[in-house]
Amino acid sequence: MKQENGNIIELSHLTKRFGETKALDDFSLSVREGELFGLLGPNGAGKTTAIFAMLGLYPIDEGEMRLFGRRMPEDAAYIKARVGIVPQQISVYEDLTVRENIAFFGQLYGLSKEEARHQADAALAFVQLSEQEKKFPRQLSGGMMRRLNIACGIVHRPKLIFMDEPTVAIDPQSRNTILENIRQLNRDGATIIYTSHYMEEVELLCHRVAIMDTGRVIAEGTPDELKELVTTVESLRIHAPRIGQATIGQIGALSFVQNVRVEGEEICADIQKGASVMPVLELLQEDHVAFTTVSLERPTLNSVFLTLTGKALRE
């Protein structure tokens, strides 16, 4: 069940205080059913608080939360039964086997013993841990643990899944497997709220992204929309060791070039987004300046984030 406007999550003007600190400050967010939605922000931005509030773990001080068209916390039981969580920390029982962990969390969401067994089979196959089903978590590799963490969160086939940095501290191969799992879950109809410090993951995976800072959403849209929002220039870099000051001056005088500087043996120029680099290269040829490589750096979510928050994501 979703709201009439198609939103599976509707948060309006949430405020959550911890003493004098506002962890959420007039926080509003809408997520449509079927979306793979990225939530980005530096440490302390309020991402986890927002997720915990949606899960009914934190009482909020002001505002309104609707999930599946129902109000949290009034309809907490209804909402919780349809939500899955994949926490950042590995959240499984050390003294239960892989299968027992998955089946237990399934039964916690109301599955019968038989249903839990059946769904655990499916979840094990999905995260490719069928051969490890009798092992204890301590016997698994880091990547396998992450996959078990995911299996425990999806065994009851939730409609909405919160994933808090599910790929942190694992090898690239395991990461690729997990990212493919997430895409598949989304293709199967689950709405996913995804937080990560890895911008490239968010850029690759998410349909829409919200950037949070100091408890607020400061920008929201598709990755391309966000890039449009903040970027007016692209960075041109040319490896030209013997370029002279005169040529640099001529490049700087071009109408679409905003700034030119020399960094070691490279010349770096900020040029207007979409402008052609050919006039710059023609100038170099005319002045007989030898150059080896030319690169044009397009904006990334990272640069968007940096521009919007003034902070690197790991701060």
């Binding site: 919780k80 920390q89 959240s91 969390f105």
Partner: peptide, 15 residues
């Protein structure tokens, strides 16, 4: 401990 480990999953579950 609240909001941590497997207990976090229990807190989030409808129990």
């Amino acid at each position: 401990q609240a909001m941590r480990g497997s207990y976090l999953r229990v807190q989030a579950a409808p129990i």
